[in-house]
Amino acid sequence: MNKSEIIIKGLPVKTTRLENGDVNLLFKIANYDKTQSIYRVIVKKDYWRDAVIGMKDVNYFVIKGELKACVNSKGTPFISVEATSIKIFHLLKDENGQIDLNYEMPAGTDEIMDISKLVNENEDLSIKRSKNKAINYMKNNNKFNKPIVVKKGSLVIVSGYDEYAAALELGINNVPVSYADN
């Protein structure tokens, strides 16, 4: 059987710790035909511990894993995923308590952060043409093209100045960020 990968996004409907310490997450994901599929995601205990350090009020997961077709004891098929990558987010909610996910998070996003926390030490780096291109992309696609790259400790912007400037101009308060390697 070929190995294939899947990315699951959302909030699990159930989380349980298994006897061996691994964590079992149960997701219900809507399909293109408006039905729901159930996915069981197994996260190894050490991996889970590292992923949740410092997290409070987690409300969104992005999990990449190896897909496996399984059958339960009653003969009912289900999909099982062994997590190979997990990112956990605390996304801000609107006045109705709903998570605002009008846009897909761009690849490489490590966190969704309030734009006011970011430090822009290079105000002159935003070229008007590039900023306008970023604004047009956000307006037309209702999402960011890429995350804003920041230094982890200081939150100083390393790249993504155009996305930063466009978000400021469009009044977007929560932006996707990625942490620089150094």
Rank of each mutant, 00 (worst) to 15 (best):
M1E: 14
N2F: 07
I6T: 13
I8R: 05
L11M: 14
L11P: 05
T16D: 15
T16F: 05
T16H: 10
R17H: 04
L18S: 14
D22S: 14
V23P: 01
F27H: 04
A30P: 00
A30R: 00
Y32R: 09
K34V: 11
K34N: 11
T35Y: 00
I38Q: 10
Y39S: 08
V41G: 00
I42A: 10
V43T: 05
D46V: 01
D46F: 02
D46K: 07
Y47F: 11
Y47L: 04
W48D: 11
R49G: 06
D50V: 08
A51S: 15
V52P: 01
I53F: 00
V58R: 08
V58G: 01
F61Y: 10
F61W: 03
V62H: 03
K64Q: 09
G65F: 07
A69T: 10
A69N: 11
V71F: 06
S73Y: 14
F78C: 03
I79Q: 08
A83S: 15
A83C: 11
T84F: 08
T84P: 11
I86K: 05
I86A: 05
I86L: 12
K87A: 12
D94C: 14
D100K: 07
Y103N: 15
Y103I: 13
E104S: 13
I112Y: 04
I115P: 08
L118Q: 06
L118K: 10
N122H: 07
D124F: 01
K128G: 03
S130M: 00
N136K: 08
M138S: 09
N142R: 05
N142S: 04
K143M: 10
F144V: 11
N145W: 00
N145M: 02
P147F: 00
I148G: 02
V149I: 05
V150K: 02
K151G: 03
Y161G: 13
D162A: 15
D162R: 06
E163C: 10
G171V: 11
N173I: 12
N174Q: 14
N174E: 13
P176G: 15
V177M: 04
Y179E: 05
N182E: 12
